[in-house]
Simulated scan of single mutants.
Amino acid sequence: MTLRFDGKIAIVTGGGSGIGAAISRQLSGEGAEVVVADLNPEAAEGIVDEIRAKGGRARHFTVDVADAGAVEQLVGFALSECGGLNLAVNNAGIEGVRKPTGDYPLDNWERVIDVNLTGTFHCMKYEIAAMLGRGGGAIVNVTSILASVGLPTASAYTAAKHGVVGLTKSAAIEYARMGIRINTVGPGWIETPLLSEYAELAKTRRLEALQPMGRRGTPEEVAALACFLLSDEASFITGSYHLVDGAYTAH
């Protein structure tokens, strides 16, 4: 594997499991020092230990991205402890309850929006400021296929993910001439802990039947695209929304 990120410093939120963990591993394997940020400190520490055992450089940081002050501290940690910030993957997210829109609990709506949409804004706000101080960088926001299609009983999650795509596009235009590229990746049905929410559906293999490729994706397949978008190979790509869904949304 080439060291595309040698000497780079990266933050990955939601880095303690699933897609975030796979991205953290690949960034480290390609030379980056990674701040694995997660609400679950044990999960983040586990990924850091795994990376270090393979000779990589990583640190963990406990953060709730819905808390702007905590996110500011996270970015400050990367600056003070690692020496800067070049790359960021804003992946932290929650699904929320499954209820029709008319019955959706207000407190759950607010929490899903706070984490998935406002949390991404918090991250970008402080990451961009840090990157401008170093002459630029690259950001990938992890959204979902539900940033382009709907899903019954998932109104909060769907609204938040649509919002992240709009946020990404606006910020990408703002900073295109300042050396910061910002893109978003939309995973489909990927084998992650979040998919456990659909365990009954998965057991019936209905998920596989919905996939033109006949299978679910892996976190590593999403990580491969995210890391490409962070790399200099994607130097003319910004403001884009890229699906990793096995043609699910092509129906």
Rank of each mutant, 00 (worst) to 15 (best):
V36F: 06
V36G: 04
A37G: 05
L39T: 05
L39K: 09
N40V: 03
N40D: 13
N40A: 08
P41I: 03
P41D: 03
P41H: 05
P41Q: 03
E42T: 15
E42Y: 07
A43F: 03
A44N: 07
E45A: 15
G46M: 01
G46E: 02
G46S: 10
G46V: 00
G46P: 01
I47W: 00
E50Q: 12
E50H: 08
I51N: 01
I51V: 08
I51D: 01
I51A: 01
I51R: 03
R52W: 09
K54W: 03
K54Y: 06
G56S: 08
G56C: 09
G56V: 11
R57N: 13
R57M: 14
R57V: 12
A58R: 03
A58Q: 04
R59C: 03
H60G: 10
H60A: 13
H60P: 02
F61Y: 15
T62W: 01
T62V: 12
T62P: 08
T62C: 12
V63R: 02
V63S: 06
V63T: 10
D64V: 01
V65I: 08
A68H: 07
A68Q: 04
G69K: 11
G69D: 10
A70C: 00
V71C: 05
V71A: 05
Q73V: 14
Q73T: 13
Q73P: 08
Q73F: 02
V75D: 15
V75L: 15
G76N: 15
G76W: 10
G76T: 15
G76A: 15
G76D: 11
A78R: 14
L79W: 13
L79S: 14
S80D: 15
S80P: 04
S80W: 06
E81C: 10
C82A: 14
G83M: 12
G83L: 14
G83K: 09
G84E: 15
G84N: 15
L85V: 07
L85P: 03
N86L: 06
N86Q: 10
N86V: 04
N86M: 05
N86G: 08
N86H: 15
L87F: 07
A88F: 09
A88L: 07
A88S: 11
A88Y: 06
A88V: 09
V89R: 05
V89N: 04
V89P: 04
N90W: 00
N91M: 02
N91P: 03
N91F: 02
A92N: 02
G93A: 12
G93I: 05
G93D: 04
